[in-house]
Simulated assay, not measured.
Amino acid sequence: MYIVYVLYSVQFDKIYVGFTNNPENRFKSHNEPGTKGWTIKFRPWTILHTETFNDKSSAMKRERQLKSAGGRAFIRELLQQRSQ
């Protein structure tokens, strides 16, 4: 099973989209001290959205969709709904 996830940094108004087959470790790695990677600059991260897929190729396809302009619009809509 694969999880596509959207993280949000409230402090920096940044979005991160990724996928994993080990969500617990992956989410932990985004917020724990580390020395490399884009996400270390914008901590702390909160989980905004997740979707579950049975196979890696479907998860990768959805990740690409969420990283597109339409996907970013969907994510911004989620943020607007969350703040109401």
Rank of each mutant, 00 (worst) to 15 (best):
residue 11 Q to W: 04
residue 16 Y to P: 00
residue 66 L to W: 01
residue 79 L to E: 01
residue 42 F to C: 06
residue 19 F to C: 06
residue 16 Y to G: 03
residue 72 R to K: 15
residue 57 S to G: 00
residue 10 V to D: 14
residue 67 K to Y: 05
residue 64 R to G: 04
residue 33 P to C: 06
residue 44 P to K: 05
residue 7 L to G: 00
residue 83 S to V: 06
residue 84 Q to H: 09
residue 48 L to H: 03
residue 44 P to Q: 08
residue 54 N to V: 09
residue 32 E to T: 15
residue 56 K to E: 15
residue 65 Q to Y: 12
residue 53 F to E: 03
residue 61 K to V: 04
residue 60 M to N: 07
residue 55 D to G: 02
residue 22 N to W: 07
residue 37 G to A: 09
residue 32 E to M: 14
residue 31 N to T: 10
residue 52 T to R: 13
residue 11 Q to N: 12
residue 30 H to K: 06
residue 53 F to G: 01
residue 1 M to T: 12
residue 47 I to R: 13
residue 10 V to Y: 11
residue 13 D to N: 15
residue 48 L to Q: 03
residue 48 L to V: 06
residue 79 L to N: 02
residue 58 S to F: 00
residue 43 R to W: 05
residue 38 W to R: 13
residue 34 G to S: 14
residue 48 L to M: 09
residue 16 Y to Q: 09
residue 56 K to F: 05
residue 60 M to A: 11
residue 72 R to A: 07
residue 36 K to I: 13
residue 30 H to R: 05
residue 3 I to K: 05
residue 47 I to N: 09
residue 13 D to A: 12
residue 15 I to L: 08
residue 82 R to S: 12
residue 33 P to G: 08
residue 56 K to V: 09
residue 84 Q to M: 10
residue 78 L to F: 03
residue 34 G to D: 09
residue 27 F to V: 06
residue 52 T to L: 08
residue 26 R to Q: 12
residue 69 A to S: 12
residue 35 T to L: 14
residue 71 G to M: 03
residue 31 N to F: 05
residue 48 L to W: 03
residue 38 W to G: 04
residue 17 V to W: 03
residue 20 T to N: 05
residue 44 P to A: 08
residue 30 H to T: 06
residue 4 V to S: 01
residue 35 T to Q: 12
residue 4 V to F: 00
residue 16 Y to V: 07
residue 13 D to Y: 10
residue 69 A to D: 13
residue 4 V to A: 00
residue 34 G to N: 14
residue 41 K to R: 11
residue 76 R to F: 04
residue 76 R to Y: 07
residue 24 E to Y: 10
residue 23 P to N: 04
residue 71 G to Q: 01
residue 78 L to A: 02
residue 54 N to Q: 12
residue 82 R to F: 04
residue 17 V to A: 06
residue 46 T to S: 13
residue 3 I to F: 07
residue 74 F to S: 01
residue 71 G to A: 05
residue 62 R to V: 04
residue 58 S to P: 01
residue 75 I to A: 01
residue 55 D to T: 14
residue 16 Y to H: 15
residue 46 T to Q: 12
residue 55 D to A: 08
residue 21 N to M: 08
residue 51 E to T: 10
residue 57 S to W: 04
residue 55 D to K: 08
residue 11 Q to V: 11
residue 57 S to T: 14
residue 46 T to V: 10
residue 5 Y to A: 01
residue 23 P to S: 10
residue 49 H to L: 12
residue 74 F to D: 00
residue 61 K to C: 04
residue 74 F to W: 04
residue 70 G to C: 05
residue 72 R to M: 11
residue 80 Q to K: 15
residue 18 G to Q: 02
residue 48 L to S: 03
residue 20 T to P: 03
residue 31 N to H: 07
residue 66 L to Y: 00
residue 50 T to E: 09
residue 51 E to S: 13
residue 83 S to T: 09
residue 64 R to C: 06
residue 56 K to H: 10
residue 17 V to D: 02
residue 63 E to A: 04
residue 74 F to Q: 02
residue 74 F to N: 00
residue 18 G to C: 05
residue 5 Y to P: 00
residue 49 H to S: 08
residue 24 E to W: 07
residue 41 K to C: 10
residue 20 T to Y: 02
residue 44 P to M: 10
residue 31 N to I: 07
residue 51 E to W: 06
residue 32 E to N: 12
residue 9 S to G: 05
residue 38 W to D: 04
residue 34 G to T: 15
residue 54 N to T: 13
residue 48 L to A: 05
residue 75 I to C: 02
residue 46 T to G: 11
residue 22 N to D: 14
residue 82 R to V: 02
residue 53 F to Y: 15
residue 35 T to H: 13
residue 84 Q to K: 15
residue 32 E to L: 15
residue 78 L to Y: 01
residue 32 E to H: 09
